[in-house]
Design a protein around this nucleic acid. Structure first.
Lengths: 347, 347
DNA sequence: GATGCTTACGAAAACGTTTTCGTGTTGATA
DNA sequence: TATCAACACGAAAACGTTTTCGTAAGCATC
């Protein structure tokens, strides 16, 4: 009933532990007869080596630690699915920690895992960490010889492998598309600047306008507190966006830096009597489930989350399995795609 | 740079390993002076005990294994967030495996983790496992002394702790609500019967009709292959549901066993010129993000995923930490709530 | 009959802990 | 001065592996 060990097999078959171990690994030192006997016994009672003992011996756990800000989140889970796929192919497990966007929980999670439980990290830093700009926990982990691969929300101040999204370029594509569709007054709904991706996407928006000879107009930019991007503040979000649209009646398109802002913009535009896509077009960022099933379906900038996860896992595993090599840190940029759906159909 | 161990501290301070270990645990055997010295050194160089070595020694890993069919899924991630919260409070980590609805991957994941990596499982079986009705891997795991807590998709044939949703009751509430709203021809969009929750929700629908004196009408029941409940088959799903609604023009309400079916039903009803909620009402199952941000927002049966996860983790941890006690297996039923939104507003 | 070479196996160390038990030193007591 | 307890520490086993090294037995060789 209880787990079988080498020692128990050895005692049972009256040989030494070493002999059992070698026999199971087809070591030629062991005679045909003994080997057959031991293997048969092990198979019969379904012997499986204990992973913890192996980890201790090898000083490798064959598991990756993934720290994400939030798990009930389409983008992050998509990334995880990419990580899992690659990890499993290489015989690795994945252990997941959530920071809940809290600096303290991020530190705690990293400390908990860094003491031998895993071989390396894949992580996206919390918003609070970005705000505090305190990265000592990350640096210390790296200094201790544990590799980190950052994705999406990466921090420039820490040097390590990174897989990032081309936020600026993705936003430029989206806004350029709106311009091409003859929109003249394109607004943006974004976050406050301390959220890095928000800042970058805003930059992309501005760049696209300028490159196409359009004027920037500060009143067409709505910067929201990201605390209201959350299921419990739908009403607040709605009223902010409603007011914004009402105060800018000439708006004929919105680029929103996430799905929720985009969907809310669509509803509020509807409420103001605008028809989408006929007289109001919308593009979001992040190709999640909301965009696909929205009504009308929402055009969006796809980040290829699964590809991000795969790439991050590949980089980490490669580094882990080639520790003798001096591999320079890399930053991989995953390009975005504009997925066109009904919210940007031509008139 | 490299990880500090007891041995290194011992060598550095010229004492034995035992002394270091005891000093760090404030064992009174060690003199004040030595204790202070060792603790100061350990703190200075940030000593943290190696988790793997502890796991081996204690034969406890303090980590829970969670196997889910799919991670890019609102309900499952909500459950995970509940598990994480409780696990972290008790000093446990969570390691996640995905079966991708495949029996083989489920078995592989369980085998991979069962060999010492974790202390117990929380799992929801894959669709393929339900179809094959092969549960030997689950039974064997339990026989080896590793506890399992099943949630949501549980299997009656295996006895262990379970946390399940009251699918029948939830569906009854939903359909009863539609009846109360004066709907006369209520259809259901559900899955084929081999999906257990689909079957139960269908049963709830039928029960509600009968208990309210309405007739069952087979033509108002649409049983879909669950392969098309997937982002790649939106078109197919749409056409199936469109035909269903078109062939039953007298339908004035739909109860759908998941969000996607419900949203698609709303779009298709729109396409057929029906106004929601005025002449067509819809209720879905699973209170996910889609329901909240749908337009009109979708009334739905909420399963309280986080509560399910919390309860499952509590049961598992309690069992793990009271191994001496003979705890009988429990099945906890989490009741559902009907969340009313605009798709069922009164006329 | 001494030497050497296979063959087949076991002992022991190592990974990093915790914990039990043993022991040398000190100071007090009879 | 012999005895004893208290004190402070170290040795070693244990958790379950892998792997290096040592060695006994058997046989052939000269």
């Amino acid at each position: 009933m209880q787990k079988l060990t080498l020692k128990k097999i050895a005692r049972e078959l009256d040989v030494s532990i070493s002999t059992v171990s070698k026999a199971l690994k087809d070591n030629p030192e062991i005679s045909e007869e003994t080997r057959k006997k031991i293997q048969a016994f092990a198979k019969l009672y379904n012997y499986k080596p204990n992973n913890i003992a192996l980890s201790l011996k090898n000083r490798k756990t064959k598991t990756l630690g993934v720290i994400i800000p939030e798990i009930v989140h389409h983008f992050f889970t998509t990334v995880i699915s990419g990580i899992e796929a690659v990890a499993n192919d290489h015989g690795y497990n994945v252990i997941i920690g959530m920071s809940n966007e809290s600096f303290t929980k991020e530190v705690l999670n990293i400390e908990m895992l860094a003491n031998g439980s895993i071989d390396g990290f894949i992580l996206s830093v919390s918003k609070e960490t970005q705000l505090l700009k305190d990265y000592h926990h990350l640096q210390e982990t790296i200094n201790q010889g544990m590799p980190i691969v950052m994705f999406d929300r990466s921090v420039d101040e820490v040097s390590c492998d990174k897989v990032i999204v081309n936020d600026v370029e993705g936003s430029k594509k989206a806004v350029a598309k709106l311009i091409e569709l003859n929109c003249k007054n394109i607004g943006i709904i974004t976050t406050k600047d301390h959220v890095n991706v928000g800042k970058l996407r805003t930059l992309g928006y501005e760049t696209a306008l300028i490159e196409n000879g359009l004027k920037l107009n500060a009143s067409l930019v709505l910067k929201l507190n990201d605390e209201i991007n959350d299921e419990n503040h739908i009403d607040l979000l709605e009223s902010e966006i409603f007011n914004f649209l009402q105060n800018n009646p000439n708006l004929d398109a919105i680029f929103a830096v996430n799905e929720i802002y985009a969907l809310t913009a669509m509803s509020m535009a509807n409420r103001l009597g605008k028809n989408i896509p006929k007289d109001f077009k919308v593009i979001g960022f992040t190709d999640g489930i909301l965009s696909k099933y929205a009504n009308p379906s929402l055009s969006t900038v796809s980040q290829h989350g699964k590809a991000i996860g795969k790439k991050a896992a590949e980089m980490l595993i490669y580094r882990l399995e080639n520790e003798e090599k001096e591999i320079p840190y890399q930053t991989i940029v995953i390009e975005t795609d504009l997925v066109e759906r009904r919210s940007t159909e031509k008139n």
